[in-house]
Design a protein around this nucleic acid. Sequence first.
DNA 1: ATGGTTGGGGTCCAA
Length: 270
Amino acid sequence: MPIRIATWNINSLRLRIEAVSRFEKAFRPDVFCFQEIKCREAEFPYAALKAMGYDHFAVNAQKGYHGVAIASRFPLHDIESRDFCDKGEARHVSATVQAEAKGNVSGFQIHNFYVPAGGDVADPETNPKFKHKLQFLEEMQRHFSDDAPSSHAILVGDLNVAPLENDVWSHKALLSVVSHTPQEVERLNAVFESGGWTDPVRRQSPEPERVYTWWSYRSPNWALANKGRRLDHIWIRGALSMLPAETQIVRETRGWDRPSDHVPVLLDLR
DNA sequence: ATGGTTGGGGTCCAA
């Protein structure tokens, strides 16, 4: 049995806990990473997640906005939440997963990120949110290049950047749209390269195949128009990147009642 | 070029 990791920007975990349950029944992830949980820790739906078989948690929560969490069937150790950019925002949580497969126990580190969206204007001089986004990515780069790049780890989350031309519905139309500007892409690529990461989603589905994980709520006909972006990512490094890996993007959840605007990304590692 | 929708918390901000 492979180990299955899922990441999903859920856009309010309490509101969509039934969607999480439906997804869990169908896809059974072992380690489930959420972004935009949008609740205080006291409001975190521990009981509902325990009923789905998750007994181990790493939660970095705040009232109303942002918030990330890991729910795991395997024990979690060394739980840390780093306050990137020192703004007091809950955008990162990491843990060591004590995974067990075929009786072999081995650990790997997992980092769960919610990178700032960056506002509307792609100019750090006039838009402090965009400046924050660029600084957040720069701090991520420094953080991971300080590590031993060969250490096995997984990085997941809503990185709010679609780095490749075929990660958006129109490269040309989105070049000046926050999420696909050269400034962000350059910084995300620096995180990826200096950290020694690999991208199993694009290993499986190389360009020019179009891959999206997000469709705006503002498009009434999201499936037909299909103006999506790939904002949600799973990266792996070290010995993990040598393992047989399969990924899935579970687009069908975008068509469920009251959906998140993001869909889950799954990774199976053997 | 413009405006379109959703969620949380509270009468507007973030996405």
